[in-house]
Design a binder for these strands. Structure first.
Lengths: 138, 138
DNA sequence: GTATCAAATGCAAATGGTTTGCATTTGAGT
DNA sequence: ACTCAAATGCAAACCATTTGCATTTGATAC
């Protein structure tokens, strides 16, 4: 927990059990978690934990860029992951919902071109590829 | 209306006033519309129009690929447009919400590479760039 | 350590986009 | 015109997320 405590302090956020546990949970998850995933994970070990605390914590953590959220097409809930995880794009299986992270990114030059063309200052982007994973192609 | 009627018939959908009007509205909109946008547009001229009809119609129209929907990050409502509009990506202003359509697409080669690398059959993708439009950069 | 105060939390209720159940109407083929 | 599945209106349900408010808890000052 040492590390997470320092993360929070560096971000000028109070160190609370909820936040420490959320960071821990996200850090040890492989892939994305929803607010409810986190809640279910922590509920058994933290008494009187409230879902709204999860939401409010996630909001704070995102605001200081400790975590990031994405919302994938045709999924209504937001998904969260640690922000220091590498910039990633996604392969999303339309059948089973499996999400594969891709760390290649072909966007940089494109963003630069589009920026100057439209006088638009691009600060971030999302790129998600949809289709069928190996197992679901049968 | 002739055209829209034919579209529906070709798609094996019943020709109803709601569907004709939704197609007309989307066809004459510049940019995306939400279900509610469409509802507000049509409500004055169609008596007893119900929002759920809009939703159900949009669902049907999307199923037969007459229209397409996207949901942009940090917007909770789905946005709809005619499907025959060109494949487009988006420049989304984080300040004013303005959406600029881009018809260049740098993804094709990338998708191909990723496909073979992950044995994933890519069928579609989304690419959205976020940042600040010219007017909001001051 | 103790006092202090803003920030964080729990709980319940509200929100808002979307979906659904059900009775009624309507389009399309006969 | 007749028939029946599909489409619709309406109200209620859903569900992820947000909010109001009273209470608790960190962080800082003493």
């Amino acid at each position: 927990m040492k590390t997470y405590k320092r993360w929070l302090q560096n971000a000028n956020l109070k160190v609370t059990p909820a936040r420490l546990n959320i960071l821990y949970t996200l850090d040890h998850a492989n892939g994305f978690l929803t607010a409810e995933d986190i809640y279910n994970e922590l509920k058994p070990t933290i008494e009187h934990l409230s879902l709204s605390t999860i939401y409010r914590s996630l909001e704070q953590l995102e605001k200081v860029h400790l975590i990031e959220s994405v919302s994938l097409e045709n999924k209504k809930e937001a998904q969260y992951e640690l922000a220091h995880s590498k910039h990633a794009h996604h392969l999303i299986c339309l059948t089973c919902g499996k999400v594969i992270h891709i760390h290649d990114c072909p966007i940089h030059d494109f963003a630069k071109a589009v920026s100057s063309q439209h006088h638009f200052k691009v600060t971030s982007h999302t790129l998600d590829l949809y289709g069928y994973c190996e197992a679901c192609q049968t």
